[in-house]
Design a protein around this nucleic acid. Structure first.
Lengths: 133, 133
DNA sequence: ATAATAACAGTAATCATTACTGATATCGTT
DNA sequence: AACGATATCAGTAATGATTACTGTTATTAT
């Protein structure tokens, strides 16, 4: 199946590129809607899934949030989820600091460990500031 | 609000105690249904949530699965999710081997890291065997 | 035993996401 | 530049997990 490049898909991709947060499908929808008032939410979901299956974007499912978040940055990196405002923030930590944990977990386990999902929880700087006022 | 201890809740708790896998609400429902044919799925969900809020059981949301899993074992330990059969398996690894990663992630980050979610993905022993046949 | 109320069964509602439909846009080939 | 095959679209309906509501019942302290 040849992947055609529709204007809607281009708009979705460039919207995602323009943000360093990690928008949900709903947020992408309302963002792209300004350029394409008639775009459908289903179109956004379909494109986000196709783009992530093609490896052009990343899809993150943080269990605590219950909604999927999408990321233009496909390089492996760590995420932080604020439990107060639900913001998803990239951590400046180098990813290879966590590359050894798979080997660690494999000790004494008879299955095959291929990878892991990891994210950090806490309170972001903005919320910490708001709490102090 | 005083927590009353109904027979349904006792049955849900003891069903969970009897299993070392990590049943979903639906699975708890069909299990407890044998003892309580008239029990409602809503009752199961309500009790599982109350028990986990009370710290008597643990609730795990693995993003890859899209369903919540419940665990009688509330001691911190690591989990493995088989991407072929979706089984959730406890890893024999000591939990304190992963206790340092929060400090690692905090480097250069201005928010407050309170914890993390971590689980491992791959193929379990049973599926590896089946694949070889 | 009684009375206050937490919990129940049953059912309806919610929310994120996916599937379906006939119409339209894209893109390699003429 | 027009053509034709088909991927994609907008709109809408369906799904699946979970939560909320309601009138009735079970639990527990007094």
């Amino acid at each position: 199946m040849v992947m055609k490049f529709s204007r809607q898909r281009a708009a979705i991709l460039s919207f995602l590129e323009s943000r360093k947060d990690h928008p949900t499908a709903e947020l992408v929808y309302s963002g792209v809607k300004e350029e394409f008032p008639s775009i459908s939410l289903g179109t956004v979901y379909r494109n986000l899934n196709q783009l992530s299956e093609a490896g052009m974007i990343a899809k993150h499912s943080f269990g605590v949030l219950g909604v999927d978040h999408f990321d233009y940055n496909t390089n492996p990196h760590q995420h932080f989820v604020c439990s107060q405002c639900n913001a998803v923030i990239d951590l400046p930590v180098n990813d290879h600091d966590f590359s050894s944990i798979d080997a660690e977990a494999a000790k004494g386990f008879d299955g095959l460990i291929q990878g892991h999902r990891l994210y950090f929880c806490g309170i972001c700087r903005d919320c910490l500031n708001k709490n102090q006022v």
